[in-house]
């Protein structure tokens, strides 16, 4: 019997910032692109995010941070993900991220950084490219 594989994405808002418009719009766009999106809500601790990523066995973790606390939160999340053996998860960060912090986030293992004004189609294309979804002929079991 043919097996089906679904891309699973965790969308999370670490820190205290409650501005969830972007996270929700992206979550919805990803759903409409056929992904299974696990939304964890606002005010998430780095521990909670890493643990949810593990339990849900996601392929992608998308973090939305608009408060400027990204340089405190992202390193911690990346460390916890690695500690839990989630080395191969694609991590994306969206929000208000000054240019000078982008290379720092990438050095931590973040693959994509998306600022205000990013088109959701660009985020979807980025994920598809990074996960090689477009080049696969038939999806295989995980």
């Amino acid at each position: 019997m043919a097996s089906s594989r679904k891309v699973r994405v965790l969308v999370a808002k670490p820190g205290l910032d409650g501005h969830d418009r972007g996270a929700k719009v992206v979550a919805r766009a990803l759903r409409d692109a056929g992904f299974e999106v696990i939304y964890t809500g606002i005010r998430q601790t780095p521990e909670a995010i890493a643990e949810a990523a593990l339990q849900e066995d996601v392929d992608v973790v998308g973090l939305s941070i608009l408060s400027g606390a990204h340089m405190a939160l992202v390193p911690k999340i990346m460390r916890l993900l690695k500690e839990k053996g989630l080395n191969d998860v694609l991590v994306l960060v969206g929000g208000i991220i000054p240019d000078e912090d982008v290379p720092k986030l990438k050095a931590l293992g973040v693959k994509g950084v998306f600022g205000p004004g990013t088109l959701t189609t660009d985020i979807i294309a980025f994920i598809r490219r990074e996960l090689n979804l477009d080049t696969e002929e038939a999806p295989k079991a995980a």
Partner: peptide
Amino acid sequence: AEGEFGKC
């Protein structure tokens, strides 16, 4: 409050 001091 970790990481959020004085940011916004």
